[in-house]
């Protein structure tokens, strides 16, 4: 009886700060990764801005987010209070893992943040420009080892696209997959590999300190505050953006979808979110509605093409 009494006091205390709808956010990854951080930042801002009184983050890790996605699509069908965080990596993982559940089975709401890929070499490397690196790649693809994230992930796809644009068989690239950004960075710093590729944020402080040389970034135009040419400038038509998005459950009515979209828009426009983007070094690439759907469809078909070229998808 005492426990129930205590519990009901606790319950009362916790019910007090109730504002609007409760949300639960699925982070389809282990704690610590980009999706987990995105989900937890959403949680913080939603609560501080009073968009939602009670936000819970649930980690459902596994297989590039496809496990979380599959669970979300089946268990939260029609639940307007459920969100899932995802991103470009999921597009590739759905294809390589032959996931039966795809992004078509959820309701994408908006792209939130994004990051461009950066290609770096150790300071001691003989490659001075991106052109030098591409020349070496053309001459002997095996001699150029690239350190980056998991096989079939954004980094791998970007290298495949670069090889293809340079007229090199993407199957021939010598790509060394690492599990975490940290491990790959160590291999690059220690000059264990020829070059490294990952999101710019991973390399930023090293580039500033001069221990890594930034050769190129994968954006369409030069980025503000980053002193490096784009891959496009060197004559290879490659643009890769590693974006993160938030999606709602399948089976929502139009009103429900509009309500979630409005909540997310309010969040993105808030000063607290902008502040978070700044401290975390994330680019604001907010895109919603039909424009986002179109972008998504384009990314899916391009990714499928290059994964076939690399040989990861039949």
């Amino acid at each position: 009886m005492k426990h129930f009494f205590l519990a009901s006091i606790l319950a009362g205390a916790m019910a007090l700060p109730a504002f609007a709808a409760d949300y639960k956010i699925i982070a389809p990854a282990n704690p610590g990764g980009g999706w987990d951080q995105t989900a937890r930042t959403l949680q913080t801002v939603m609560q501080s801005e009073g968009i939602s009184g009670n936000v819970q983050v649930i980690n459902v890790p596994g297989a590039g987010g496809t496990i979380g996605l599959a669970q979300f699509a089946s268990q939260d069908k029609g639940n307007a209070g459920a969100l899932i965080v995802g991103g470009y990596v999921m597009v590739g993982a759905i294809l390589t893992n032959k996931s039966p559940v795809t992004l078509k089975d959820v309701t994408p709401i908006a792209r939130l943040t994004g990051e461009y890929e950066a290609i770096v070499v150790p300071a001691s490397s003989p490659f001075q420009t991106f052109g030098d690196l591409v020349e070496a790649l053309k001459k002997d693809p095996g001699a150029v080892s690239w350190a980056g994230g998991s096989a079939g992930g954004t980094d791998h796809i970007a290298v495949g696209l670069i090889a293809k644009a340079a007229g090199v068989d993407p199957k021939k690239i010598n790509y060394i997959a690492y599990s975490g950004g940290g491990e790959a960075l160590a291999a690059i710093l220690g000059a264990q590999v020829s070059a490294g590729i990952s999101g710019y944020g991973e390399f930023e402080s090293q580039v500033k300190a001069g221990t890594l040389r930034l050769l190129a970034v994968s954006s369409a135009d030069r980025l503000e505050g980053i002193d490096a040419p784009t891959i496009k400038e060197s004559g290879l038509d490659v643009v890769v953006e590693n974006w993160r998005m938030v999606a709602a459950a399948p089976g929502l009515s139009d009103e429900q979808k509009a309500a979630v979209s409005a909540d997310i828009e309010k969040l993105v426009k808030s000063a607290a979110w902008q502040e978070q983007l700044k401290t975390k070094g994330w680019q604001d690439t907010y895109l919603s509605g039909a424009a986002f759907d179109e972008q998504l469809a384009k990314d899916v078909s391009a990714t499928e093409g290059v994964l076939k070229d690399i040989g990861l998808v039949e």
Binding site: H3, L6, A7, L10, A11, M14
Partner: peptide
């Protein structure tokens, strides 16, 4: 289990 649920889930 309920007490544990309250402690770990709510607090």
């Amino acid at each position: 289990s309920f007490v544990i649920w309250v402690i770990f889930s709510k607090l």
